[in-house]
Design a binder for these strands. Structure first.
Length: 849
RNA sequence: GCAAGCGUGGCGGAACUGGCAGACGCACUGGACUCAAAAUCCAGCGGGGUCAAACCCGUGCGGGUUCGACUCCCGCCGCUUGCACCA
């Protein structure tokens, strides 16, 4: 006999839609709690079973916090720009905005069917002009900013000091452009000549498999200067209550390393090659240099004799994907340029090579190779017969065979001496300091901190994204739109095919691209690149605080209230966003912070990643494996409350765990038992429920349940909360007469988990108003205290019995009671007790000989 | 290769700060109810051992610390995730 979940859920969802009990209050006198989900990309496939996991978790927390007296913000929205929709439109001809609207409608229907408490009046949709207007506004904020390293923060571009020798208007603009946080650069992209388009990284493999050629080609791109924030992004990680693995990943992604740059003059040229190294102490062992194939100096220094070979190598490199350049190439390749550079420490002439194991975008794009003390250089030197010199020896004085392998540990300097500096005998740390001092005094280099983090390639050659609000005039100058000219709308088009020139489909919309600028009267052409999908999600959490505002992205009062002191109190989402989204959003937030638009240096105080729900076979759910579970089906058979409860009961929120179809019957059974504990089959109050006081044993279970629910919900440990609620039902079902007040408090504990059945039971019990706006029950610690406790008795650390003693009995009392126990007496018989270990209310241990 | 995390019954998982391993649920077994089945209720359910008990073994493997280790330390093995020539 099932409780009537279908009619109950339908009824309450309808009532909630009408009465809006979850409408966010603007009452700022109450303490706020901001709990946020990572908003979904509304794909055509609808909700999958993984979505409700994190969403149920935040829904439970939001309902719990509301019942605890907080003003709760628990919003939802859609991150709807993106490639899949654009590709769908290319094949179907349906406009992306139509497809997006349809998909969002499906998502909302499905989300509402699960009974989430979103206030839909605060919904955001990144593709609506009222929203992306502010995304563009923030882009312009960065465009109009430079990073003042002396104070470590962004300032308006007008405040950028212009050097005295920069005088012409054009030069000043060029100088400013070189400092803007949003700037144009020529950056390599995946270009496919046959398709006439730029491909996203994730598309490259797909097209290569189909036989297309994809090359890395530098193209004009917008970049965001996130690297200026590297140090702050790294340091402020300490302010966060995040999973340690995510913090570690962000640290690694930022990749701070200390070292030095060293200038190597090139023989018979004016040029010198600057390298970055983290082991400047090995400078005397640098026997050759390697520059990245893309390094501009190659053109200048390559000898005639080697030019053909070097250029061919460079060409071959551009055809390799990043993957082929790294993982798949087992052997290092490279070619000699014919040029030699002077090692400033040893004064030796060393050959300059080009090799793709050196990355153009890291450090200076050139390295000094120390094959004796670096594995990669060793491998390369061995392949090409380059000399290997030892300049570091192990601390323990043992000898190493550098012909066989590099010695890359720290150690003691050897063979490292010239007229001015001597590293011999110095431990690595001291040697580093000594050589950096010499580099700086001799002008051949300097100490330097390097970050692995790269500037953010911020443009996409796509239609379905935010247009970049910049226009270019025929005279080569450009103008950014003013705030009052936003939003710059996407034009309505019927074709989404790329322009064929590497530009976005927007380039083909003549009426949009070319126009007369009303402010200057000049003929202008709009930027045709659009922003990447990450853009909209960089600030959506701020828009939820004040979603309808047409004057500003978020009213300062609303921002201060909802984001003040902690930022978002709890942010739940998949671990796949551990680096990019969370790093980008932190970056934007810091720029906003520099201008005082936001109150906190960090947007998300506490972060939690829900684990993956796997298929019943333990493998990742996927259509091709046929192991996908559809939430609509589960709701149809078991109800939304059972779905919610089961997803939370499956295991710890952060763990990945397999779905189990019979498992959900367990929670269904629990809900049925809870129903029968309180109500009859006719949905009236069970005659067993009466206005009687609680017996003390039952009362202890009740208070333990309240305590456990309060504590475990805070800790997001929902599976153990549910286990306790099950214990409650098991205990109280045994009673022939069940106190009404205990039943009501139980219903309140269950309410955040199963909002529909509890609302109905609350009504049956005669509760006032909605259970979800009632006050969460308090527990009384004195009701948890027991008179007697069971104590474990061990003899020589082996459990030999259990005894009941009064609470807080002392060692003497416990010891004598224990000795009276028959089994204990037998084990102690004829033995000498050499020691007694006593833990109050837990155990007593007799150590015997 | 580097980094982080995880290994507990047939299964999902619990176990505070080192103190009764296996809460809760699934599956399974037996019983009650039923003409029968479903549903429901009751009981059992790590392995060995015993008529029953006593007792022995048991948290990936090997060692260590401790009166006492799932928990702490060292070394392996396996799995998951992320990064991947970052000089």
């Amino acid at each position: 006999m099932h409780y009537p979940f279908a009619s109950i859920e339908e009824k309450w969802q309808r009532r909630w839609a009408e009465s809006e009990p979850y409408r966010v209050s603007s009452d700022q006198t109450k303490p706020k709690y901001y709990v946020l989900d990572m908003f979904p990309y509304p794909s055509g496939a609808g909700l999958h079973i993984g979505h409700p996991e994190g969403y149920t978790a935040t829904d439970i927390v939001s309902r719990f916090k509301r019942m605890c007296g907080f003003n709760v913000l628990h919003p939802m929205g859609f991150d709807a720009f993106g490639l899949p929709t654009e590709r769908y439109s290319m094949t179907t001809g349906i406009h992306p905005s139509i497809a997006t609207a349809n998909n969002i409608a499906t998502f909302k229907r499905q989300l509402n069917a699960i009974g989430f408490d979103y206030d839909w009046s605060r919904e955001v949709n990144t593709t609506l002009p009222e929203y992306y207007r502010w995304t563009q506004w923030m882009f312009l904020m960065m465009y109009n900013s430079w990073f003042d390293r002396s104070v470590g923060k962004a300032r308006h571009i007008d405040e950028l000091p212009i050097p005295a020798d920069v005088t012409s208007a054009a030069d000043i603009e060029t100088y400013r452009d070189a400092h803007r946080l949003a700037y144009i650069a020529y950056s390599p992209v995946n270009w496919c000549e046959a398709l006439g388009t730029v491909l996203a990284n994730e598309e490259v493999d797909e097209w290569k498999e189909k036989g297309y050629t994809v090359e890395r080609r530098p193209m004009r791109q917008w970049m965001l200067r996130i690297t200026e924030y590297a140090e702050r992004l790294l340091e402020d990680l300490t302010l966060l209550d995040w999973p340690s693995s995510t913090l570690e990943m962000q640290r690694h992604w930022i990749g701070k390393s200390q070292g030095a740059e060293v200038h190597f003059p090139v023989q018979d040229h004016e040029h010198s090659i600057t390298v970055f190294t983290t082991r400047p102490d090995t400078l005397f062992g640098a026997t050759y240099l390697v520059v990245a194939p893309e390094h501009p100096i190659v053109d200048h220094i390559v000898s005639e004799q080697h030019r053909t070979e070097v250029m061919a190598y460079r060409e071959a490199t551009s055809l390799k994907s990043d993957l082929e350049r790294t993982e798949l190439s087992k052997f290092k390749t490279g070619v000699f340029t014919g040029a030699y550079a002077i090692n400033p420490a040893s004064s030796q002439a060393v050959p300059v090579w080009v090799a793709d194991y050196v990355l153009a975008h890291y450090g200076t794009g050139a390295i000094m190779a120390v094959p004796g003390h670096d594995e990669r250089d060793h491998e390369f030197a061995t392949s090409f017969g380059l000399p290997i010199v030892q300049v570091v020896t192990p601390i323990d004085g043992s000898s190493v065979d550098l012909a066989a392998a590099a010695f890359s540990d720290e150690g003691i300097g050897v063979n490292s001496e010239n007229a001015h500096v001597n590293l011999n005998g110095l431990p690595t740390a001291d040697a580093k300091a000594a050589i950096i001092l010499w580099l700086e005094t001799s002008g051949t280099g300097r100490g330097r901190t390097q970050y692995r983090l790269r500037d953010w390639l911020f443009s996409r050659q796509r239609y379905w994204g935010e247009p970049i609000p910049i226009m270019f005039f025929e005279d080569g100058t450009k103008r950014a739109l003013e705030a009052d000219e936003l939003p710059l709308l996407l034009p309505e088009v019927a074709e989404f095919k790329p322009a064929g020139t590497g530009e976005s489909p927007l380039a083909t919309v003549e009426s949009w691209v070319n126009f007369i600028d009303p402010k200057t009267g000049k003929k202008a052409r709009l930027e045709t690149n659009t922003m990447p999908q990450w853009a909209g999600s960089c600030w959506y959490y701020l828009r939820y605080c004040d979603p309808q505002n047409s004057e500003t992205f978020c009213d300062p009062d609303a921002e201060r209230y909802w984001m003040g002191s902690t930022g978002v109190d709890l942010y739940v989402g998949g671990g796949e966003h551990a680096v990019l989204h969370l790093l980008y959003a932190r970056f934007w937030h810091k720029v906003l912070f520099d201008y005082g638009y936001v109150t906190t240096p960090e947007p998300f105080k506490r972060l939690f990643h829900q684990g993956l729900i796997m298929g019943e076979d333990g493998r990742k759910m996927s259509k091709s494996l046929g192991n996908v579970v559809n939430p609509d089906d589960v709701i149809h058979v078991h109800g939304a409350d059972a779905l919610r409860l089961y997803e939370m009961f499956l295991g710890p929120l952060e763990a990945s765990k397999p779905w189990n179809t019979t498992g959900i019957e367990g929670v269904t059974r629990f809900l049925n038992r809870a129903w029968r504990m309180i109500a009859t089959e006719d949905s009236t109050l069970s005659p067993a429920v009466q206005d009687v006081p609680c017996a003390s044993d039952a009362e202890r279970v009740l208070h333990a349940t309240i305590k456990k629910t309060r504590e475990d919900v805070e800790a997001l440990s929902f599976n153990t909360t549910i286990a306790q609620l099950m214990i409650f039902v098991n205990e109280f079902t045994k009673l022939d007469v069940r106190p009404r007040s205990a039943m009501m408090q139980f219903v309140q504990c269950l309410a955040p988990f199963a909002p529909h059945i509890t609302e109905e039971l609350w009504q049956i019990l005669g509760g006032e108003g909605s259970v979800h706006t009632s006050s969460f029950p308090e527990f009384d610690a004195s009701k948890l205290v027991v008179d007697n406790v069971e104590i474990v008795v061990q003899v020589s650390s082996k459990i030999r019995g259990k005894i009941i003693v009064p609470l807080d009995a002392d060692a003497a009392t416990t010891g004598s009671l224990a000795r009276q126990d028959e089994s204990i007496a037998r084990h102690l018989d004829g033995k000498e007790i050499v020691r007694e270990v006593f833990v109050p209310n837990k155990l007593i241990n007799f150590i015997v000989r």
